[in-house]
Nucleic acid binder design. Structure first.
Lengths: 205, 205, 205, 205
DNA sequence: AATGAATGAGTCTTCATTCAT
DNA sequence: AATGAATGAAGACTCATTCAT
């Protein structure tokens, strides 16, 4: 019925330099607050007040609170994937690639505790779980691919590569959450720990 | 003229049989809805409507929505711990105990997908994270204790037992989430998978 | 997704005597304000403030502002139809019935200027036009039926009875609007005038 | 720097050819949307988006949304009156003039369904009712004048000419609304129907 | 124990309008 | 002439909680 206005259009509106800045400012501040207080408990009012702009500004840049959150999630997922790919680089050794991937993932999580929290919440809210599943699928597929190759080359015992990939994800999430949020370990230490446990489990040599 | 202390006191009020039933009914329905739609998106109105009672009933049995949720969380955590302890039984073999604990944990998660989802959300909301941390601390302590023993006995290589415990938790959560919610594996299969990966990691024999 | 709450249920909720009173009070005041200031310009806040209750009360009794308006329209249309039928009574003479119908319609409009204004607006807003069309269809059908009978009996010259019914409606609306809102004529006078013009047009004897 | 009087002055600013075009474009599109969706539900944003210009443009050409609407109404009323006068031409026969006026009015309404809808709404909103009343007064006065003459010449039975004029208006509005919006009759047919009913009522020969 | 009614702060969102460029 | 950005009051509606009965 109604022609959508403002940011509600599917395509992004053309923004000036100042506009792009404002947008980033809003995203940054919202990320902070969503991570600290939760998505639902953080109101749009608090966000615009925190940034020091009028309420309309928010809706000039984002179609809704949900859309902003989804955008944050998407960008973060993409950044994680890219960081990981860059870290792995052009290796031929599958085991090396796997380890590099795990390490890069753990480091990213350690260095982006806010985004990690958002991921965690998003998985629990059906509105955002969809987005998370799609992103996670890609992440897991990448890892599973490399694990599969390693199995074929006889470098690791045969086991469901997808399950392994998920296990790695679970370990990374949990250890990052516990040891980074409590500041008990530095990112590099943490990454080493994650790699070691992923590789050997509790009984491995 | 009755003193309207209601449920606000920490101690539970004395309830008739019917009262206890009502209370359970409310808890059960709320758990369902919190798991399906999320805690914040589910209103008290929806809960009482779903159960078919007036709004006052809710506040007769629970001091607040938050308190109800906390109670659900506490009871679930306790049930998980007890289930695990019972499954382990009076073994002397640390390795056996560890495996039994992991298996029991995975099974419990697989059989209580709603509660698992609530756990997941609760960890992301500062209001409930406190409760979760305390419960998780106990769970991890139990596991770490056994892992520590196994290390002392030379049954497994020396590694930070607490980190291992967390890793086990992470693997269990992640694999249960993925494979149970998507109905891809039966609980027992899933438990085997979790045990196997926890023990060996991806590279272990 | 969400189970509807409060008045959003299709069926009316069970109300106490006090509740029914409140409801009527809200309807009466809203009718007044919608008629005086227009539907869109009248906010729900103004309505509850005018009645002296909290904002939630409105949504306890009505699912939305739109629904309240539709209910007002429906009730008014029904009242008009019933008033007209009662006024016509069990006549055998078609001409008499037609005249009685016109007179009753004009009187009702003259005595309910607020509702007449609401009708007028409702016809111009696609959200409510549907409701209006359905009510008007019934009204016109009743009149057309009687006109058709009169034609068959040779009491009036043959002309499209439905068109005649609409013409009667148009005359009634317009003359009531002009002469009642400006207080230039009393309802009975007005009704006589409407009947006379409907019967003869400008050139008829 | 220029004094930013903009369109706020009563007198129109001097516009270039391109400017005049833009203005007409905005008026045309706004008319469309106001008629289709209603005045209140159509936002200025939607209008400028629909035309494909920035928001400032609107306020360059019009002092406000209300003013734009009033201008549309005024222009339409003027066009209707002029069309009617031109159709009547320099007749001496009052009856012929009356009929020509009715026919021209009905035709105009049939050919401008959007404007007819706007008229209808405008009458129900106190902000615009003033404008409508003034325009309608002129229209009715013209018709009443001719009816009065016809009465004096003994061409039609004596009846309040102003009331007759309003009745004609009511019939025209109602029949146009019903039969044009539903596309059941062509404008010329409709005009014939209106003339016939206005002349004879339902009982006239 | 339980209900219907009520509260009112708070939520997200819209929108007419203005302004700097 | 025109644009993107900004304002902020106002809008409809929600909801945890309380209260009288």
């Amino acid at each position: 019925m109604k022609t959508p206005t403002d940011a509600s259009q599917g395509s992004e509106r053309r923004l000036t330099a100042r506009g792009r800045e404002r947008r980033e400012q809003l995203i940054a501040y919202a990320t902070l607050r969503f991570a600290r207080d939760g998505f639902h408990p953080t109101s749009v009012s608090e966000i615009v007040d925190g940034v020091g702009v009028g309420k309309g500004v928010f809706y000039w840049y984002f179609a809704s609170k949900d859309e902003l959150f989804i955008e944050i999630l998407r960008a973060a997922q993409q950044d994680l994937r890219r960081t990981q790919l860059k870290a792995i680089g052009p290796t031929d050794d599958p085991l090396e690639a796997i380890e590099a991937g795990i390490r890069a993932g753990a480091l990213w999580m350690a260095e982006h505790p806010d985004l990690r929290r958002l991921f965690e919440f998003a998985r629990t809210d059906e509105t955002f779980a969809k987005v998370m599943r799609s992103g996670q699928r890609q992440l897991v597929a990448q890892a599973a691919q490399r694990l599969s190759t390693a199995v074929e080359h006889g470098l690791i015992p045969p086991r469901d590569p997808e399950a392994l990939a998920h296990a790695i994800l679970g370990i990374t999430n949990q250890l990052t959450m516990v040891y980074i949020d409590s500041a008990q370990r530095r990112p590099e230490e943490l990454a080493d720990l994650v790699v070691s446990i992923c590789r050997n489990g509790y009984a491995g040599s």
